[in-house]
Every structure is written in structure tokens, then in C-alpha cells.
Design a protein around this nucleic acid. Structure first.
Length: 829
RNA sequence: GCGAGAGUGGCGAAACUGGCAGACGCGCUGGACUUAGGAUCCAGUGGGCCUACCGGCCCUUGGGGGUUCGACUCCCCCCUCUCGCACCA
């Protein structure tokens, strides 16, 4: 390994210090300039940054610095998603207080980020565990409470036995906790919810109005919201018309094919439907059997559907038929009405169940020719369906709903898969929910002047059962803000995703004491123009933040529909074909990387190895390649300082010599390519390739001794090339470029320079190479004047001596000419 | 099962609206410089073949069809992989 690398350590330390001192990246509102809010998802302060962080922050910094150079007023802040369970786990394992652990980690990680030389406005740094931060979240909670957007209810929730807390639906993956991977169990518990379902329609609608977002993230959000249109109606119980079972269906047209009905096992009506104690006992046994199954087992595909036939029967209102009623585990209490009409002819699940239990199957849609198999879900003409016969499925749906409405039996409804966001956490290290339970007044929000409700410092964290806050008498025992009587504080804390739902707003005015965000600052900076982060938050953070933004808008705190105009979801960093992990032993430590190669190299390789949305395959040799490239640039500039600083070197213009013009064209073509790659599709890897090509061309140009250009032309061309390289490379590798820029004699930072623009005169060509194909195969090349006529190109091509043999014995059928590019001569025998 | 995305040299990857496939980098091979090279520089590098060194031919973007003068790119069928959702009525 090389020992004679350029002095990156010294250079990086020096420039980091200078940027810091000059407050170079401090952002202030300036209505005269266009703003650019560049944001990377803030990290959880786990203690050390990892390569995923290096990648995302390299991308963000590149864009921020690029936009600076393009004249934008850039806001590029950083902070800490500082509440969360690992801090409590550290307290349990090492006896260190979560606050101390968290702030120490923040100090470490801040130092690491500084060593990367990212252009943050550190004056805007925030930590979500700071009471001056979560105070505003508590205030909003109270506002949401007033509007019914926050509410408390008892429900069956996802319980993580290892984290000892409740999880939101979004935080359960395949029946396991998103954080610790433990199997989640259902639990009946009181908890707080945010009414995200009230915004389901709007969240969905705006998915079509976020062109700057990756389609797959939008698809995931649409699927998660899961809108479906259909109808609800009642099935009266046979012989007891007062008792009705409400069902939801997306296929009201198939109602005549209903051969039985199903209730979810937990359906509250079941108790009223059982006819005697024997049946009651059997139902209890069935429910117990179903409850025994874990979430994971329930999710397993293709497993048989358990059912229990009740003695009660129901009536199909469409045709008056009396049909059996079942409890079955394939119907979920949490979706729709928790009860369905079963149409085995047109629904595969019902078909499976009907086959297993010997129930009749009626077809209500004509099958296509040759159809064989189970349920048919496609289109067709209605049959066996009374007044719907002869209609298409779509028309029959409408007719069926009209009929239900006309007879007062039901109505059209829209159902969502999205559930309200459960935000209660039975843990310590989170923002307290600002609510009290008064013996006289009941549940009462904390008075605004008493905010923040500060998390008490002295607490025993055992990790065993119950909220740690419940053990803190001084916290729990409080006065009712309404009647001054005795009250008990809520001991749940808020899901940490609440903090990350608005941190981007706080950055606009991080020290503002009059509210969550200063209106003018938010109006100026928001929305975030470019948000960058991992795909893992596609439906977690990104959905919550969208929801919370809309709530704040409706509270008239901001006038913003969506927080993030554009989103870049960067891929993972992998090595040896797997995600980096301790157990696989394939970790690359950013500190060590920076120590060995420097931050510029680490950043350059992160940006070069793959386009940002793809996974990045880490390769130690590749890093050396990036390092080698920067060394080449260094040696070239330092080795040519005399010539670069020679009198007349700063002159610009089109050189007289042909080779001089050709080289200058390469310089300006590179500017064009790099700018396109950054602007057009974030293809930083090809942008870097283009700069590498320019550096290669520069050393070739330099290597012609005695010169193919007149001596006087050399210094200006070398200098123009070098200055272009440094400015183009600046956002990628800020330290080395600053240093070399100053070595050229500049006193100003390279980041105060304007991004270069290609000189149209330099790009002009007199001649172009046109490829000559015969029957689609390249047989020759022509050098012709630019914009030569089609006829001329055609004649030159046919006359070309390398082309003639391929055409000689054949008949020319036609000649296709693409000006300035290609000729294709089509022949026939 | 449903939805989205992807499949190109030994490897990471390029190829914008169809127009020279493999830019750039890694690795590898040879050479130069050198006490030394794992530094640096130069040259070569998809596969097969012809050749008197110049040079040339054929094949090649997961597989098979199609559209087109021309397809990595567009259309149809199939295979493989990744991600997301998954009894959502």
C-alpha cells in the first residue's frame, strides 16, 4: 500500500476548521435568492456512524454544495433522532443513564461527521430528547386531542415482549418487531392513537402529486393505505330479524352467489347469537384454538381455514335464501366490519373454505371459454343473479348498490387497510404524553403554561413489565390543571416516530421559543426540496411525516400540503454479497477508512461505485482506485504549479491550434456531462467518470513534449482544465479541491465560485465522424463537415473504398442517413 | 398469489428520446523506472477465428419470438433474482 499519498489528513483538518470558523455553511433567509432545502434523514445516535451513513451524507453534501455553487441559498441541517429504546437497553446492560448515553453518542457521532467534512449549518443542530424540542410536540398533542385527532381507546395491539411495549402496525414486519425481531403477540391494552385514517383519502390522493418521489415508494404507500370501494349491508339473522350482521364487500354484484356468511372469531355479536351453553362453550373452545396461533402462523400462506358453524342462520336479502353462518379465522375483525358474505364462486378464499366444509358453490359470472379452476374473479356477464342477470360486473355492482340503498338495506362505502397510528409506548426514553387523570375531572390535558412535561431524570429502568415512569412517584402524582385536585399523570411516552414527523420543520427556526416553528422561516424554507434516506422508511417515517404535516397545516401552523418535494431513496451498502453486519464480519469502519484514505476518498468511492438508488457493493480495491485518482490530481496540480501560475495562464478563449481546440472541447464537454448527470438523474457515478476522463485527457495533452500546440497556448489550457476539474470535483471531494484551489493562488473558497457552464464556442465542432453501416454492420467511418447534407453523406458513404466491397455484388435497396451520426446502406442480393 | 424493480465482460458498472454495446474504475497480462515495488508511468484486456506486423471476419446485453434499415432500449411469451404486500372480503 502506498505511503506517498497526498497529505489528506492535514488538508482535511485545515479546511474543516476554516469552514467552521468562517461559518461558511450558515443559512439565513434571503428572499432575494432561490432557496434549496437539502435534507438527509437524521440518524439515531447509536454511538458510531456506519457506511450507510457515509453514503447518505456524501450524497446530501454533494447536492448541497452543488446547489450552493449554482447560486441557491441552501439550508443543510443536521440533528439527532435521540429518543428510543437502545438508550434504555444500554441503561439496563451498563447502568448508564439513557440521557448520558445518548448525549455521549451524539458527541461521538458529531465528531465523526465533522471528519467527513459535511457542509452542515451546525448552528441549527437539534436533539429530539431536548425538552425545548418535545415541548412543541406536547402542545400539538393537546391540539390534536381537542380535535379528536388524538384519542385513547382499549384495543388489541401488537405487543413486543422483548421491547416491553406496543408497536404500531407499520412497525411490525412479518409478525416480528421491526427493531429487535421478536415475535409480536396480541394484547388488549389502553393506548393513545393518532387518527391518521382521517387523512387516508388525502394521503392517497397526494401520492399522484409527488412526481419527485420514486414510484416504488409511492406504490408501497398506496398499498399500505389500501383503499377499496364497495358496499356495506345487513344480513338479518333467521327468525330474529332485529339482529343484523353488517358485512362489507367489494363485490356487491355477487350477492346472489352468497352460500354462507362468516364472522371473525372475535366478533362482538357472537355472544348474542349462541343459543345455549353448550354452543357457548364450543365457541369459546374455537376461539381459544384460534388465539393459540401466533401471528406468524396466521400469516403463513396456504394453510387450511379453520371454521365453526353456528346454529344461527342468516338471510340473504337479495333472494331471501336462508344460509349457514360460520366463525372462521380467515375473516379479520380489524378490517371492514369483521363479517363477510361468502361467495365461493367468485372468491378464492371462500371457495377454499366451501370445499373444506362441503358448502355449495354458485357461479354468478359467466366463465371464459376453457376456464377451469377455483373461483373466478374476472369480468363477465352476470348469471344466476335475479335482477342483475345480463349485466357486466361493473354495471351489476352499481345496480346492486342502488338496490341496497333504495331498500334501506345498505350503502356504498370505502374501506381502508390503514389503521390509526398507535403512539403509546410503555417505555421511559420518549416524550411524555401531556395528559393527567384526575379523580374528579377524569382525563385532562396538561395546561399549556405547564409545558413541557419534562421527563424525570431519576428513574429505575429494569426492562421488566410496565412503564418505568409509573414507578416515579414525583412524576405520577400531580395536580389536576383544571380543579387542582389530585391527579395521576399518563405514564406512556410517545412513539419516537412522532419526533421525526416534524424535525424538518424545527430546523427552519431551531431556537424559536414562540412555537413549534416560526411562520416566516417555515414559509421561506419549506418544503424540503430534496430529501434523502433509506428505503426502509417507505411506509413508516415517510407516511407519518406526511400525515403530521397535514395536521399542522389544518392547525394553521404552516401552509404546506406535503413536506418533501423530492425523495431519493438510496440503496444499502453491502459487502461480499451481504448487508454489512457484525455476525457476517464484513463491516467497514468509517473511522478507519477515513484514517487510511481520507474523507475525500471515502466520499468519492461511495458516490462512484454505483448510482445512489442501487445497492453499493463495497470493494476495498475500488477504494484504492478512488484514492489513486485523487493522488493523480494532486500530483498533477502540485507538479505543474509553475506553469499553472505563469503569466497569461488565466487568459481564456478559443485556441488557434486544432489540438488546442480539441482539448478545450473536452474540458467543456465534461462540464456539460457532469452537470447533466447531477441534474438529470443523480448519476454521480457517471459524473465522476467524466471527470476522470478529463484528467486522463489532461495528462495525454500534457504529455506531448514540445507541444502539439504553440507554447503560449499551454498555460491557459492547463489552467482552464485544472480549474474546471477542481470546481466540478468540489462537491464530491471538498477538501482536496479547496486546497488545490488555494494553491493556485485563489483566496476565496472554491465553494464561493459559480458552477462552470460550458462555453458554446468551445463545444462547436467543424467535423464529425459518421459511422457507415451496411445492413446494420459497421463497415467504415467518414469524417465530414458538421451538418453535411444527407445527399452528400450518402454519396461519400457509397463511394467509400471500405464500404464498396460490401455493396459491390448487391443491389442497394435504400440508404438511411441520420445527420451527424450514421449512415445505413440497406442491400439485397 | 398480487404489485414494483432488475438480469450487460472475471468484478462494480456505462450506453438521455431506438443509431459504433461494454465509457469510467477494479482486477488481470506485458513493459518502463527501480536495490526493491504491493508506488508511479506506458500498453493491452468480452468470446471465437483469419492474418505477411497493417488490418479484417463472425458471435455476444437471462431464453425464445416479433416490430424496424437498425433493438441493451419498443411489443408478446418464458426463466431467474431482489424488494414490498400478503386470508384486506
Amino acid at each position: 500500500m502506498s505511503t506517498d499519498r497526498y497529505p489528506y489528513r492535514e488538508i482535511e483538518a485545515r479546511w474543516q476548521h476554516r469552514w467552521e470558523e468562517a461559518k461558511q455553511f450558515r443559512a439565513t433567509e434571503d428572499p432575494a435568492r432561490p432557496k434549496f432545502y437539502c435534507l438527509e434523514m437524521f440518524p439515531y445516535p447509536s454511538g458510531r456512524i456506519h457506511m450507510g451513513h457515509v453514503r447518505v451524507y456524501a450524497i446530501g453534501d454533494l447536492l448541497a454544495r452543488y446547489k450552493w455553487m449554482r447560486g441557491f441559498n441552501v439550508l443543510h441541517p443536521m440533528g439527532w433522532d435521540a429518543f428510543g429504546l437502545p438508550a434504555e437497553n444500554a441503561a439496563i446492560e451498563h447502568g448508564v443513564h439513557p440521557a448520558i448515553w445518548t448525549y455521549e453518542n451524539i458527541d461521538n457521532m458529531r465528531a465523526q461527521l465533522r471528519k467527513m467534512g459535511i457542509s452542515y449549518d451546525w448552528d441549527r443542530e437539534i436533539a429530539t430528547c431536548d425538552p425545548t424540542y418535545y415541548k412543541w410536540e406536547q402542545l400539538i398533542f393537546i391540539r390534536m386531542l381537542e380535535r379528536g385527532l388524538a384519542y385513547r381507546k382499549r384495543s388489541t395491539v401488537n405487543w413486543c415482549p422483548s421491547c416491553q411495549t406496543v408497536l404500531a402496525n407499520e412497525q411490525v414486519e412479518d409478525g416480528r418487531c421491526w427493531r429487535c425481531d421478536s415475535e409480536v403477540t396480541p394484547r388488549e391494552i389502553d393506548g393513545w392513537f393518532f387518527k391518521i385514517t382521517a387523512y387516508a383519502e388525502e394521503l392517497l390522493a397526494w401520492c399522484d402529486r409527488l412526481p419527485g418521489w420514486p414510484e416504488r415508494v409511492l406504490t408501497m404507500q398506496r398499498n399500505w393505505i389500501g383503499r377499496s370501494e364497495g358496499a356495506e349491508f345487513d344480513l338479518p339473522v333467521a327468525g330474529r330479524p332485529a339482529v343484523k350482521i353488517r358485512v362489507f364487500t367489494t363485490r356487491p354484484d355477487t350477492a346472489f352467489g352468497m352460500t354462507y356468511a362468516v364472522l371473525a372469531p372475535e366478533h362482538p355479536l357472537v355472544d348474542r347469537l349462541v343459543v345455549d351453553e353448550r354452543e357457548r362453550a364450543a365457541v369459546a373452545a374455537f376461539r381459544a384454538e384460534v388465539a393459540k396461533e401466533s401471528e406468524i402462523e396466521r400469516l403463513a400462506a396456504d394453510r387450511p381455514k379453520r371454521g365453526f358453524r353456528l346454529q344461527a342462520r342468516v338471510v340473504n336479502p337479495f333472494n331471501g335464501a336462508e344460509i349457514p353462518l360460520f366463525l372462521a379465522d380467515y375473516v379479520l375483525m380489524g378490517y371492514g366490519t369483521g363479517a363477510i358474505m361468502a361467495v365461493p364462486g367468485e372468491d378464492q378464499r371462500d371457495w377454499d373454505f366451501a370445499k373444506q366444509h362441503g358448502l355449495p358453490i354458485v357461479e354468478t359470472v359467466t366463465r371464459p371459454d376453457g376456464w377451469s379452476g377455483g373461483a373466478y374473479a374476472g369480468d363477465g356477464i352476470k348469471i344466476n343473479s335475479g335482477f342483475l342477470d345480463g349485466l357486466t360486473v361493473a354495471a351489476a355492482k352499481r345496480r346492486a348498490i342502488d338496490w341496497l340503498v333504495a331498500n334501506g338495506l345498505g350503502e356504498a362505502t370505502v374501506n381502508y387497510r390503514l389503521r390509526d397510528w398507535g403512539i403509546s409506548r410503555q417505555r421511559y426514553w420518549g416524550a411524555p404524553i401531556p395528559v393527567l387523570y384526575c379523580e374528579a375531572c377524569g382525563m385532562v390535558p396538561e395546561a399549556e403554561e405547564n409545558l413541557p412535561v419534562v421527563l424525570p431524570r431519576d428513574v429505575q429502568i429494569s426492562g421488566k413489565g410496565g412503564s418505568p415512569l409509573a414507578e416515579v412517584a414525583s412524576f405520577v402524582n400531580a395536580k389536576c390543571p383544571r380543579c387542582r385536585g389530585r391527579a395521576r399523570r399518563e405514564t406512556d411516552t410517545m412513539d419516537t416516530f412522532v419526533e421525526s414527523s416534524w424535525y424538518f420543520l424545527r430546523y427552519c427556526s431551531p431556537r424559536y421559543e414562540g412555537g413549534m416553528v416560526e411562520r416566516a422561516a417555515a414559509d421561506y424554507w419549506m418544503p424540503v426540496d430534496q430529501y434523502i434516506g433509506g428505503i426502509e422508511h417507505a411506509v413508516l417515517h415517510l407516511l407519518y411525516a406526511r400525515f403530521y404535516t397535514k395536521v399542522l397545516r389544518d392547525l394553521r401552523l404552516i401552509k404546506l400540503d406535503e413536506p418533501f418535494t423530492a425523495l431519493l431513496s438510496q440503496g444499502m451498502v453491502i459487502k461480499d454479497g451481504a448487508k454489512m453486519s457484525k455476525s457476517k464480519g464484513n463491516i467497514v469502519d468509517p473511522d478507519e477508512l477515513i484514517r487510511t484514505f481520507g474523507a475525500d476518498t471515502a466520499r468519492l468511492f461511495s458516490l462512484f461505485a454505483a448510482p445512489p438508488e442501487k445497492d453499493l457493493d463495497w470493494n476495498d480495491h475500488g477504494v484504492e482506485g478512488a484514492s489513486r485518482f485523487l493522488n493523480r490530481v494532486w500530483r498533477f496540480v502540485i507538479g505543474h504549479l509553475d506553469e499553472l501560475k505563469a503569466p497569461g495562464a488565466t487568459a481564456r478563449g478559443v485556441p488557434a491550434s486544432e489540438d488546442g481546440r480539441a482539448f478545450r472541447r473536452v474540458i467543456h464537454d465534461t462540464i456539460r456531462r457532469v452537470t447533466d448527470d447531477i441534474e438529470h438523474d443523480f448519476h454521480f457515478n457517471t459524473a465522476i467518470s467524466a471527470v476522470m476522463e478529463l484528467v486522463n485527457a489532461l495528462s495525454v495533452f500534457d504529455g506531448h513534449p514540445g507541444g502539439r500546440v504553440p507554447p503560449a497556448e499551454r498555460p491557459p489550457l492547463l489552467r482552464e482544465a485544472v480549474e474546471t476539474i477542481l470546481r466540478l470535483l468540489g462537491p464530491f471531494c471538498p477538501h482536496i479541491t479547496e486546497e488545490l484551489w488555494s494553491q493556485l493562488g485563489h483566496r476565496e473558497s472554491v465553494f464561493t465560485q459559480r458552477w462552470p457552464t460550458p462555453d458554446p464556442d468551445a463545444l462547436k465542432r467543424e467535423e464529425v465522424t459518421v459511422v457507415v453501416q451496411v445492413d446494420g454492420r459497421v463497415r467504415g467511418r467518414l469524417l465530414v463537415g458538421v451538418d453535411a447534407s444527407e445527399e452528400r453523406i450518402r454519396q461519400l458513404a457509397l463511394a467509400d473504398e471500405r464500404v464498396r466491397p460490401w455493396v459491390a455484388s448487391r443491389r442497394v435497396e435504400k440508404v438511411v442517413v441520420v445527420p451527424n451520426r450514421l449512415v445505413n446502406i440497406v442491400t439485397r442480393a
